[in-house]
């Protein structure tokens, strides 16, 4: 087996193990209500951290202005309760237009 195939398998098995923790434990281990509540809140905290780092950074540095401007446009649309489609296309559209205009 090549080293690359071994890498893919190790990454696949490890990732699947992480993903399986919750579904495997569910129903077998009764989690306290307080922990359940923290897990749901933790998922949202993770998602917000992902959108913040994903919206602002790239490879450990600033992602440039076009991307955060698009995400911000999407955020404003979402705040105004625009439909999901409008939010997503609005964000991509603003970033694409800025890039077309030469903004990185």
């Amino acid at each position: 087996m090549s080293a690359t195939a071994a890498m893919i398998l190790a990454l696949a098995v490890g990732t699947y193990a992480f993903r399986l923790v919750g579904p495997a434990l569910h129903g077998r281990v009764e989690l306290p209500a307080r922990l359940q509540e923290l897990l749901s809140a933790g998922a949202v905290v993770l998602l917000v951290a992902l959108l913040a780092t994903g919206g602002l950074t790239e490879g450990g540095g600033f992602a440039g202005w076009a991307r955060p401007a698009g995400v911000l446009a999407g955020g404003v649309l979402a705040w105004r309760r625009a439909p999901f489609v409008v939010v997503v296309l609005g964000a991509a559209g603003v970033t694409a237009l800025l890039r077309a205009a030469g903004v990185a």
């Binding site: 917000v48 959108l51 913040a52 919206g55 991307r67 979402a78 997503v88 609005g90 964000a91 603003v94």
Partner: peptide, 8 residues
């Protein structure tokens, strides 16, 4: 920009 916006 679309993926962070989806999460927002």
């Amino acid at each position: 920009a679309a993926f962070p916006a989806v999460l927002v």
